[in-house]
Amino acid sequence: MQLMKTSAEISRSERWEHFKCRTGAFRDKYLVAPGLYALGEPDENADVLISANYKLSFDALRQELKGLSLWILVLDTKGINVWCAAGKGTFGTDELVRRIGEAGLDEVVRHRRLMVPQLGAVGVNAAEVRRRTGFKVSFGPVRASDIPSYMRAGYKKTSEMSTIRFKMMDRLVLTPMEMNPVLKKYPWFAAGILLLFGLQREGILFSSAWDEGLPFLLLGLAAMVAGAFITPVLLPFIPFRSFSIKGLITGFVMVFLASLVPVITRSQDDALLRAATFLFFPAVSSYIALQFTGSTTYTGMSGVKKELRIGVPLYIGAAAVSLLLLVAFKLGDWGIL
């Protein structure tokens, strides 16, 4: 059995790594080695905490344990956080049982208690762990910061400790990874817009592509910001529970405000283009906002399925009608219609 040492201190370079990880620079590779770690000077009576091998999770745990001496058993969750990994089963009963055996935990400690993060309960069956290893699982608090007071209280959780929150700061740190994927798709949107507006009877003209396309490139950015940033951050303040409706509202408001900016205003003179604008961009915002359901702490699968059943046909319809309006505008522009 290999024993590793760790501490409650987070170094400056690690803080920089955390920032980069949050913004998606090396998200998939931020790992710690699975196995048993000693934090401080734990003895045979010290508590055993279970964690995941996503370094952001492991660091979030250990930085809350200043002044304590305990064991941390890190499961191999392929670099995924506890909750997500528990949903997949990698943070699960089998892996926990295997790691207990591999670390020789029954010889490291005399007691038979394990503290599993509460969100790990999605993958860990406490009764089965006890049957297979003799260790009794207590599901600790949701947040690592509550662990010291949970231990002081004799392993008793308040309802506050067992409830997941989703405050503005919690939501804000998630927005870079909401923006990231949509920004990657933006060049395709931009290319399509420039092509459509560059297309003239004389051929593809760069000047008209840029002049007429620019307002729509900006509106595209506005819709992305509405769906991937404003909706998540202002989530509880936007009316309705449905994420697609929330995104539709922020998208609509954003397009309206953007239309007041001179460079965009001039694209709104034509009724067809204006209709397409107010149809297409709020729909884009709505679709992007719906993706945020995957990152929240309170949305469930049945609800998302319901939103998609109603939403997806509407999104396809909105995109199709917008395209028709644009084609009608082009035909009118060319004097055909």
Partner: peptide, 21 residues
């Protein structure tokens, strides 16, 4: 998962829109 007497049932799964699509 943790109800030993089987009193609770729920169709659980990921709530990611992208994954469901």
């Amino acid at each position: 998962l943790n109800c030993e007497s089987g009193a609770i049932a729920v169709d659980s799964g990921v709530g990611c829109a992208a994954a469901i699509i």
